[in-house]
Each structure stands twice: as C-alpha cells, then as structure tokens.
Computed example of a mutant assay.
Amino acid sequence: MYTIGETAELLGISAHTLRYYEKEEIVRPLRDAGGDRRYDESHIKWLQFVIKLKETRMPIASIKKYASLVIEGEQTAGDRLNLLAEHQRSIRAQMQTLQDADEMLTFKIASYRTLAEA
C-alpha cells in the first residue's frame, strides 16, 4: 500500500492531481483507519493507464466516462470498446500529423545544411 505522496512520486504526478482524480471519480483510493488515502497495485496500474490517456490528449470528460463505465461492469464492454477505439483513431491522427511535420522539418533542415555548406 502506498500513501498519496508515495503514489504521486511513483507516478510522477502531484498529490493535488490524485485528489482531483478522486474528486472526479476517476480513482477511488482505499482509506486507512485514520482516513488517509491508500493506493494498492491495482490503483497504480489504473492510474498509469489514466495518465497515458491524458498524455495522449483524451479529454478529462472522456476519462471520467470511461472510469464510470468500468465501475458499472462488464455489460459496458461495448461502450468502453467504442470509447477507446475512438481515442485510438485520434492518437493515430496525431501520429500522422507529427510524421508529416517531421518530414517537412527533415526537408528544411537538409536545405539549410546545403546552404550552410556552400
């Protein structure tokens, strides 16, 4: 079991972010006898996934929706599939945009190298 500070450090996020995720019902930490938050390995794995969704620009509203679907159970598998498939399409579009930009930059850099060497 990890404290909120240990969990934040382990995940590279702030304790404030963990509290926000709890407030938004994205994560539901356990509580010890004193009422302090405790996170187990399942919380860590879940939060790692949430962080990846956030890093890949999934809106917080969609992350909340996904979290609520997970809590609702297996009957929401189709909805979860659709939500994640849509996000994957978005990621692939982002990747294509980055690839296109990289190709343009490669061309420009090569052009400037040629000019600089002349």
Rank of each mutant, 00 (worst) to 15 (best):
E6C: 03
A61I: 04
E72I: 00
G78S: 13
E72A: 11
I44R: 06
H43M: 04
A101G: 04
S111P: 02
K64S: 04
S14W: 11
H87P: 08
E25P: 03
I4Y: 07
T97V: 04
A85Y: 03
T97C: 09
Q99E: 15
M1S: 10
D40I: 00
D102I: 08
E6T: 04
K108E: 09
I4R: 05
E25V: 10
L10K: 14
F49Q: 11
L18C: 08
L53Q: 02
L18K: 03
Q48M: 06
E72T: 12
A85F: 00
I91Y: 05
L84H: 06
L83N: 09
G12W: 13
R80A: 00
Y20K: 04
Y112M: 09
Q99M: 10
E24A: 07
Q48L: 11
I4W: 05
R89W: 01
I71V: 15
E72W: 01
E74V: 14
I91M: 00
E24W: 02
Q99V: 06
A101V: 02
E72M: 01
S68Y: 02
I109V: 15
E117C: 03
R28A: 15
A33F: 05
E103Q: 14
T17H: 07
L53W: 05
H87N: 05
D36Y: 15
A61G: 03
E55D: 11
I26E: 09
L10F: 03
S14G: 13
L83I: 06
Q96T: 12
E103M: 06
G35T: 07
W46F: 09
R89E: 13
R19I: 10
N82I: 05
Q75F: 03
G5E: 13
F49P: 09
I109Y: 00
E41Y: 01
S14M: 07
Q94N: 14
E6D: 11
A67H: 07
K108C: 05
I51G: 01
E41D: 12
L83E: 11
L30R: 13
I44A: 05
S62K: 14
